[in-house]
């Protein structure tokens, strides 16, 4: 599948923003972080910036962005529509929680319940995003059981690293817990990614050129190969669905994503447990940069590596 930059930014940025929003609510309610004014402005500002810029970016690949509001109407049947509706619904409680935190200096009690409702809606939005991909039977690499759990874990993972950066910047609350949480989710994210790639390489093909054309019955060991394409140049189908990358690159990029996005950040965050507090800001910032690079690589692979069954009509033998 064609890896559109707008969609890669959309999934990575909104995932991190929603994850951060979730941790802010949980830490606020549990009283682990006080309702500090400056911290609140920076944290909610960052979360809303990531979410809003991500959502705007997702409209960048539309043919008619001015009609985007119409996408809210079909929530009964379409995951894309559900994602849009949930994204808008979540702004209500998260916005109220942010205002209460920043203006009233409150982040627990009744206000905390609003925050938790918002956090729940944020996670449902991330789940709906993942289901846009996971519900497509035509792309076996996406309709895989590790996809939704991966999106949720990587959202909480990148959100926890952002939370760590913010806590380090404003020296608000003790950072011991968020360090443990970040390490846990970085490890979990890496494991899920490995399980996902393992599952991709071991699952049997769902469709073949034989089932696509029905021409396998012409011989006992029937094989079907394309002799002539319907057109001399790439058409929309091949540009959108027929994206190919060299296999050796896919392998190298997988390792790169794993090292950049999960292993290096995990090592950096782990050193924070023993380093002096003055190192926590630069080290957590560095971890954040690596997570961003790793997740962008991982997401690019998620799109570029996914094969669509329509390519069976264009020379692929099994998918």
């Amino acid at each position: 599948m064609h890896p559109a930059k707008s969609v890669i930014y959309f999934t990575v940025a909104t995932g991190a923003g929603y994850g951060l929003m979730g941790w802010l609510a949980v830490f606020g309610v549990l009283g682990l972080v006080p309702a500090d004014h400056a911290f609140g402005i920076a944290a909610f500002g960052l979360a809303f910036f990531l979410i809003v810029s991500g959502l705007l970016s997702s409209t960048g690949h539309l043919g008619r962005p001015e009609r985007a509001w119409r996408a809210l109407s079909q929530w009964r049947s379409s995951w894309l529509s559900r994602e849009g509706v949930l994204a808008i619904l979540s702004f209500g409680p998260t916005g109220l929680y942010a205002l209460a935190w920043v203006l009233l200096g409150q982040n627990s009690g009744l206000v905390g319940i609003i925050g938790l409702v918002g956090a729940g809606l944020c996670m449902m939005t991330v789940f709906a995003t993942s289901m846009i991909y996971a519900s497509l039977k035509t792309i076996p690499g996406w309709s895989n059981r590790w996809v939704s759990i991966g999106y949720l874990v990587m959202s909480l993972m990148s959100g926890s690293v952002l939370m760590l950066v913010l806590q380090s910047t404003f020296t608000v609350g003790a950072s011991g817990l968020i360090i443990k949480i970040a390490i846990f989710f970085l490890a979990l994210g890496g494991i899920i990614k490995l399980l996902y790639w393992h599952s991709l390489s071991t699952l049997p093909a769902r469709s073949t050129a034989t089932t696509a054309t029905g021409l396998g019955g012409l011989g006992a060991n029937g094989q079907v190969r394309m002799v002539e394409s319907p057109h001399s140049e790439d058409n929309f189908l091949l540009k959108e669905m027929g994206y190919k990358i060299a296999r050796k690159h896919a392998h190298a990029l997988k390792r790169l994503a794993l090292v950049l996005g999960f292993i290096i950040p995990m090592a950096l965050v782990a050193t924070l447990a023993v380093l002096a507090p003055e190192y926590s800001l630069p080290v957590s910032l560095l971890a954040m940069v690596f997570v961003a690079l790793g997740l962008a690589t991982e997401r690019w692979l998620f799109f570029a590596e996914a094969k669509h069954v329509v390519t069976l009509y264009y020379g692929e033998t099994e998918i």
């Binding site: 011989g219 029937g222 094989q223 079907v224 190969r225 002539e228 319907p230 140049e233 058409n235």
Partner: peptide, 26 residues
């Protein structure tokens, strides 16, 4: 590099059975 919207696309395939030594162009 001409490209455009078409609702019909005509492919040509070869259905091969290498063991039997037969093939059909379809």
């Amino acid at each position: 590099q001409p490209d455009g919207v078409w609702f019909n696309r005509v492919h040509t395939y070869e259905a091969v059975d290498e063991a039997a030594g037969t093939s059909r162009t379809v």
